[in-house]
């Protein structure tokens, strides 16, 4: 039987021993593995997602993996919540977290001028040089925790603690497509132009979402991302290639 919210126990990292199954109206439920940002927790979300995608129960419509929970949308006239919740709880309890399921992408980034308008300020704020900020940001291996907010917008974990920066008090109404941004302990690869309160370190010519390209989406939850600084002289050619439908991001080995 799945656990009600009063019976939940967390370990030190906030991962529950038995996931909670919460109703989201009549047509969805959320299998919640915890309430923190943690690779093992996210790994369990992705592992359960994979099981459901491989063996979709009747009435399953769509699943949405997030940082810490798997949203399962279903047709309530076809399947029964209790049966589905029971099945998911049983599967969830014996899951091994997916270490890193996906591919590793090298994403080219033009740091600083003209796109990375917050780079200097971030360096000042943390008493670092611009070079050090770039090295710290481009030196990490990030995990794609989820895609959300906008098509192809990739939420990343793995930001160096030295770069953790509260979000801007005044969000910007528009930041350019492909902005490489940080906010709090999170990092992201932006997709299309959007409002944002995060800090912009640079920009990538990579289009993580391009509706006319096959595949339309490059990055998926569970993938890894590393950033490769590029020189301004390479921007135009790479942007042209991206607009022509090239991925521009390269799949690299671990």
């Amino acid at each position: 039987m799945w656990k009600g919210r009063d019976q939940v126990r967390h370990d030190q990292r906030g991962i529950v021993s038995t996931p909670r199954v919460l109703a989201c109206g009549d047509g969805a439920l959320s299998v919640e593995f915890g309430d923190t940002v943690d690779p093992d927790l996210n790994g369990k979300v992705l592992a359960l997602d994979e099981i459901l995608r491989e063996r979709a129960p009747a009435g399953l419509l769509e699943t949405v993996p997030t940082y810490r929970s798997l949203l399962v949308q279903f047709d309530p006239t076809v399947t029964d919540f209790d049966a589905l919740a029971g099945l998911l709880a049983r599967e969830a309890e014996r899951l091994a977290p997916q270490a890193s399921a996906g591919r590793r992408w090298s994403v080219p980034v033009l740091y600083g001028d003209p796109y990375g308008i917050d780079l200097d300020e971030i360096a000042d704020r943390h008493g670092l040089t611009v070079r050090q900020v770039i090295d710290l940001h481009a030196g990490a291996i990030y995990r794609v925790y989820m895609i959300g907010f906008l098509p192809g917008f990739a939420y990343l974990g793995g930001l160096d603690p030295k770069l953790v920066t509260p979000r801007r008090t005044q969000p910007r109404a528009k930041i350019p497509s492909g902005s490489i941004i940080i906010g709090g302990a999170q990092a992201a690869v932006g997709s299309i132009e959007c409002p944002s309160g995060w800090h912009i370190l640079g920009r990538t010519p990579v289009r993580s979402y391009a509706p006319e390209r096959d595949p339309a989406f490059l990055l998926a939850a569970g993938d890894e991302v590393v950033f490769a600084p590029i020189d301004a002289s390479r921007w135009d050619a790479m942007e042209r290639a991206a607009l022509a439908g090239e991925p521009v991001a390269e799949e690299v080995s671990r």
């Binding site: 989201c24 969805a28 959320s30 309430d35 923190t36 949405v64 940082y67 929970s69």
Partner: peptide, 29 residues
């Protein structure tokens, strides 16, 4: 809360305390 999934019809309560009913063009998380 740490971002999680959204369905159409979710009623979220932001800091203002005033409900927002999320409709068909809602964000996904």
């Amino acid at each position: 809360i740490v971002s999680d999934g959204i369905v159409t019809g979710h009623i979220q309560i932001p800091g203002s305390g005033h409900p927002i009913v999320l409709m068909r063009d809602r964000q996904t998380a």
